[in-house]
Amino acid sequence: MLQVRDHMQRLTHFLSPELSLAEALDRLHSAGLSGLPVLNAQRQLVGFLSEQDCIPSLLSGSYYCDTRTKVEDLMSHTPLSVDPDDSILDLARQMTGARPKIYPVLQQGKVTGLISRRQVMAALNQQMKQCQAA
């Protein structure tokens, strides 16, 4: 069975709620990801910030030179997450709707990694190729 744990990337970047929007965007870009989990001081998941969440504030902030926006102002406060033992097939079905492109992977309440649509598609493509070879 294809599992999230076999295709996720380990958590190397995250955001904190009090970061400024500009700093959060720098971290998103340095991570090369379209979104990152937001963790509190105890490293518990408290939100998720995507590039899409940032665009409206970037428009107004750049026009009015408003630099007061924080991650906590824009983040999703009820982020979807997956477990490392979840099925890639189930996650792919979830992703067919208007769902996030990237999910935090939670194990025992802690974020251990991330999995994106690209990784899900690569896993399914690999599985399809194995079917063709058989």
Rank of each mutant, 00 (worst) to 15 (best):
Q3G: 00
V4R: 06
V4Y: 02
V4A: 07
D6M: 03
D6L: 10
L11R: 04
F14W: 15
E18C: 02
E18S: 09
S20E: 05
L21Q: 02
L21R: 03
A22M: 10
A24C: 08
L25C: 10
D26I: 11
R27A: 03
H29P: 01
L39W: 15
N40Y: 07
N40D: 15
R43V: 03
V46A: 06
G47R: 05
Q52Y: 10
Q52F: 13
D53A: 07
D53K: 08
C54W: 06
I55E: 00
I55N: 00
S57K: 06
L58P: 03
L58Y: 00
L59C: 14
Y64R: 12
C65F: 13
T69Q: 04
K70N: 00
V71P: 01
V71Q: 05
E72S: 14
E72N: 08
D73A: 14
M75D: 01
S76E: 09
S81H: 12
S81V: 02
S87T: 08
L91G: 07
T96W: 06
R99Q: 15
P104M: 09
L106T: 12
L106M: 14
Q107C: 09
G109F: 01
G113S: 11
I115N: 06
I115K: 03
S116P: 00
V120D: 05
A122D: 13
A123C: 09
A123K: 01
A123V: 10
N125E: 12
Q127G: 01
M128A: 15
Q130F: 09
Q132R: 09
